[in-house]
Design a protein around this nucleic acid. Structure first.
Lengths: 195, 195
DNA sequence: GTCTATACGGTGATAGAC
DNA sequence: GTCTATCACCGTATAGAC
């Protein structure tokens, strides 16, 4: 297949960035394993071998997509530790988390929702586990001998944005999804506080 | 690789059933695409070609795993339509759904959580879409011009079991997960009722 | 029903010219 | 940076003997 659009001129960094955009889209819609490097290269308008110039391999694309993740979770953990304990601390922390997660991150959440196993593996291999960070936050918000049911409810509150994205019908406007996630977070954190 | 445990004697139906059990487990832990027919056959203690005697292909295993799904959703839709409208109908329907879903179904939920895209594709190809059934239930519970935010919250209430499974740390006892899901469902349906 | 053996396509990945 | 060409491998799937 020698005929193809004369690849629009791009600098290296631009090509890399666009490849990330395209890969994120394909991985979200078809899944990581079901997406081939060939598909990504085709959508990019370059040959597969050229794609390998920008990324060492398929998994490196994923890692590049995930880099920086975990920073926010760590920041939240730090913030929680700095606060003086109060009855509304859990609620404040949850809303802080959901609100910080909601800016432009919906695309990333869709990707993570579509490839839960992959994200877990890569994150573990990359050293940082978001789940662990979240656990640290929970430990600061709940007594260590707390009812595991209430602990899980609080976890669900923190994960209400991904849950909302997963529950939303295709085509739901982002603002609706975010609003519902916020309301769900408030509701769940309250449920976690009830005995 | 000619040496292998002398396959424990099984009837055809037993082999098929055990293959389903094993495949469900592997698909849940590693994902569908990342699991090869070779792995399933190995875990079963038979040759790959023998596995193809019981199932036409890999996707037929998934379909066999999913068959019967959608029946419960349809039953719920029917039940809702039979009820006389009342202020607590939504709450009753949600709890009915979560409770009915919670018996022995956690394994299936884990599978669906691990392979969201696959399940969507297969279900669509198999004709029945669980999402559509759920939409029908929602239409009966909410006015058609209802706030989309409240509609999504109600959807989240129905999906609180998968959400709880997704949020649970590995090793969480099933009873804890189910209890949290129930509490979350109640909480979310209440949130959906608030303006 | 289970086996051995094999066909076939596509995949991730690399070498090296331009 | 992008290309052509090529690789080894592994996946699904089938044929046919027992």
């Amino acid at each position: 297949m020698p005929d193809r659009q004369p690849a629009t001129r791009r600098t290296g960094a631009q090509t890399r960035a666009e490849a990330q955009r395209i890969a994120l889209e394909l991985f979200s819609n078809q899944g990581y394993e079901a997406t081939s490097m060939q598909q990504v290269a085709d959508a990019l308008g370059i040959r597969k071998a050229s794609l390998y110039y920008h990324f060492r391999g398929k998994d490196e694309i994923v890692r590049s997509l995930l880099e920086g993740r975990g920073d926010e979770a760590r920041a939240l953990a730090r913030w929680v530790h700095e606060q003086t304990p109060s009855p509304t601390l859990a609620r404040d922390a949850v809303l802080r988390w959901v609100d910080s997660s909601s800016r432009e991150k919906l695309r990333g959440i869709r990707f993570m929702n579509a490839n839960p196993l992959l994200v877990g593996t890569v994150a573990r291999r990359a050293g940082v586990d978001v789940g662990d960070e979240l656990a640290a936050v929970l430990d600061a918000l709940l007594p260590h001998d707390a009812d595991p049911r209430r602990r899980l409810l609080l976890r669900m509150a923190f994960m209400s944005l991904p849950a909302a994205v997963a529950a939303a019908e295709p085509g739901t406007p982002d603002e609706v999804t975010v609003a519902a996630a916020r309301a769900a977070a408030e509701s769940l954190v309250a449920a976690a506080a009830r005995p």
